[in-house]
């Protein structure tokens, strides 16, 4: 299933990440490649580059992957993870500047309809005030 953009949900809290993914699956279904991760390498609150790389791989689509994040460190760690991908994958992963729960549902809805990575990102980011 690589004809739809993949979605990665990344929270400092593993519970928030899992719960957000549950909402996406219930509202959008299972046709969109979806993965989630959260928590630091010890399982406490935080984010982990290693887990992000794994999540990107799980949600991989040739159309690209959109990452939804909660707070600052999640964004910095995502950008670090993207730089560590193979060069041909780097340009096809974006971090969305959007609220994590609403953004994930909107992005997944747009992805389900076959939208491009840029359109998926734009739809999610419309939720953020300019």
């Amino acid at each position: 299933m690589t004809d739809r953009v993949g979605i990665v949900i990344l929270s400092h809290s593993p519970d928030v990440a899992r719960g957000t993914a549950d909402m996406v699956r219930q509202m959008v279904g299972c046709d969109v490649p979806l993965s989630f991760c959260g928590g630091n390498p010890d399982g406490g609150l935080g984010t982990s580059v290693e887990k992000i790389l794994k999540a990107i791989d799980e949600a991989w689509s040739d159309k690209g992957v959109a990452i939804l994040v909660d707070l600052g460190g999640a964004e910095t760690n995502s950008e670090m993870a993207i730089e560590m991908l193979d060069p041909d994958r780097q340009a096809r992963v974006v971090v969305c500047n959007a609220p994590i729960v609403e953004g994930a549902v909107m992005a997944a809805t747009e992805a389900w309809g076959g939208a491009s990575l840029e359109d998926v990102r734009r739809t999610a980011e419309e939720l953020s005030p300019p």
């Binding site: 928590g39 630091n40 390498p41 010890d42 406490g44 935080g46 984010t47 982990s48 580059v49 290693e50 600052g72 460190g73 910095t76 760690n77 950008e79 670090m80």
Partner: peptide
């Protein structure tokens, strides 16, 4: 540091 810190300071000090 990038892999194990688990906060923004990981990529920052890692970089």
């Amino acid at each position: 540091l990038v892999m194990k810190v688990g906060g923004a300071s990981g990529p920052l000090y890692g970089t």
